[in-house]
Simulated assay, not measured.
Amino acid sequence: MDPVETLLAWSIPVGTLLMVAVGVFELVRARRRKRAGTPLTATYINEVTAMFYGTKRRELEHRASVEMLRDEEGDNAPPAYGIDLDRGTVMLPGDRASGTR
């Protein structure tokens, strides 16, 4: 067998074992301290999957663009508290349920 063929034949099994080893290392490390962010193994799996499925690439690009968006106060449900300068009132979290101001 040609050395290039041997290298290609062993690349997937060695890559898989390396990914498992890095994943175990990340799990042990994550239990010791809290760390935010995507683990290296998850990024690796996402990129390998994106090579074979175009929709995965779109999903990853969508996630990246959503992370860049700023959360506005008016985008979701009304705030639990707020100040209405026109009426001169302050809304507290318990005010909406009881109907009092």
Results as ranks from 00 to 15, higher is better:
residue 58 R to C: 09
residue 64 A to V: 01
residue 60 L to E: 03
residue 43 T to L: 13
residue 54 G to T: 04
residue 39 P to K: 00
residue 22 V to H: 01
residue 100 T to G: 07
residue 55 T to Q: 06
residue 38 T to L: 15
residue 41 T to G: 08
residue 94 G to P: 01
residue 47 E to V: 00
residue 40 L to A: 15
residue 3 P to I: 00
residue 26 E to P: 02
residue 66 V to Y: 02
residue 63 R to I: 12
residue 34 K to P: 04
residue 27 L to I: 12
residue 41 T to Q: 07
residue 44 Y to L: 15
residue 71 D to V: 14
residue 89 T to F: 07
residue 38 T to A: 15
residue 100 T to C: 14
residue 65 S to W: 05
residue 26 E to I: 05
residue 27 L to V: 12
residue 32 R to H: 05
residue 78 P to F: 09
residue 78 P to R: 03
residue 79 P to L: 10
residue 90 V to I: 15
residue 90 V to S: 09
residue 38 T to G: 04
residue 8 L to G: 02
residue 58 R to T: 06
residue 85 L to G: 00
residue 72 E to P: 03
residue 53 Y to W: 15
residue 57 R to F: 01
residue 46 N to F: 07
residue 30 A to K: 09
residue 42 A to S: 08
residue 52 F to L: 14
residue 11 S to F: 03
residue 69 L to E: 10
residue 6 T to W: 01
residue 72 E to T: 07
residue 12 I to K: 08
residue 57 R to G: 02
residue 77 A to L: 13
residue 64 A to F: 06
residue 16 T to F: 08
residue 35 R to E: 15
residue 12 I to C: 12
residue 97 A to E: 15
residue 65 S to A: 11
residue 71 D to I: 15
residue 7 L to N: 07
residue 1 M to E: 11
residue 71 D to S: 14
residue 58 R to N: 06
residue 58 R to F: 06
residue 1 M to R: 14
residue 15 G to S: 02
residue 61 E to T: 07
residue 98 S to N: 08
